[in-house]
Design a protein around this nucleic acid. Sequence first.
DNA 1: CTTGACCCTGTAGTGGCTACAGGGTCCATC
DNA 2: GATGGACCCTGTAGCCACTACAGGGTCAAG
Lengths: 146, 146
Amino acid sequence: MKGDYRIGDLARATDMAVETVRYYERIGLLPEPPRTTGNYRLYGDGHLHRLRFIRRARALGFHLDVIRDLLGMVDRPDQPCASIDQLARAQMAEVDAKIADLTRLRAELAHVANQCHGGTVRECRIVEALSGGEGESLPAAASTGA
Amino acid sequence: MKGDYRIGDLARATDMAVETVRYYERIGLLPEPPRTTGNYRLYGDGHLHRLRFIRRARALGFHLDVIRDLLGMVDRPDQPCASIDQLARAQMAEVDAKIADLTRLRAELAHVANQCHGGTVRECRIVEALSGGEGESLPAAASTGA
DNA sequence: CTTGACCCTGTAGTGGCTACAGGGTCCATC
DNA sequence: GATGGACCCTGTAGCCACTACAGGGTCAAG
Ligand SMILES: [Zn+2]
Ligand SMILES: [Zn+2]
Ligand SMILES: [Zn+2]
Ligand SMILES: [Zn+2]
């Protein structure tokens, strides 16, 4: 409950790669810890908690710049939490949009994949479907006529 | 129906950026076209069709290395199309897996986001949820005892 | 005093583009 | 024949969030 971890301990405790921890320090997400005489980073519980927060937020799909904002808010605990709420809802919306995209994609892909009746590549309906269909138009030759 | 396009024409016809077309050439997806005396690339219908194929496959989420394989198969039209079928099914599976991931994510995110009752950051349940919960264990201090 | 686990810095790679910088070409118009 | 502007060329660096070295240093146990 009071700390003194080296980077490997911290990485194990948060299930991250050591390089990731250093990366977060480099981009300013995790504050630089003090060093030992041998120049080893030495972390405390604050670092551990912060890193866990980052990892959980990443697991929920938050981008690092958003996480940076979230951490900034967490560092001002007397402020109202409305903007945190807002970021969480924005993240939900983003995930929803991605799901919708992928669902459309899946339908189109199924449509395409089910066309194949198993002949040669030349006859393959999948290839046909990928090869185009609509939109064969082009302005004849070079841009300004002949 | 017979071609002679400059890179900009091709980009317009496939709704791609000019840089993307050059990029595909650089990584060997699109064959190098002949050049004009002024060193401009000069494309034909073959290039157009190939590029359209790439764009449609990308839109369905295929990775470029898979598209490279697909194109290799399309170039051997007398072979059986079974492996094309296979790649399409693998792509479906990949999309399904992504959807499943995101759906789990969405549920967890909703769970977290709905906790907030709108006080200060200190009391915010979202922050609490992100800050950790389970797994407060750590091996006391440095790795091999005191 | 050596071994081996751990740590350090710095750089380069991943995928799939995108965005310049710093030029060259070409065609129309004045 | 000069100028303007649309287009083209090469080459390099940037994006995201890491990941993977290379080439060293530190430190405790045996
Ligand atoms: Zn369809
Ligand atoms: Zn087929
Ligand atoms: Zn939950
Ligand atoms: Zn709240």
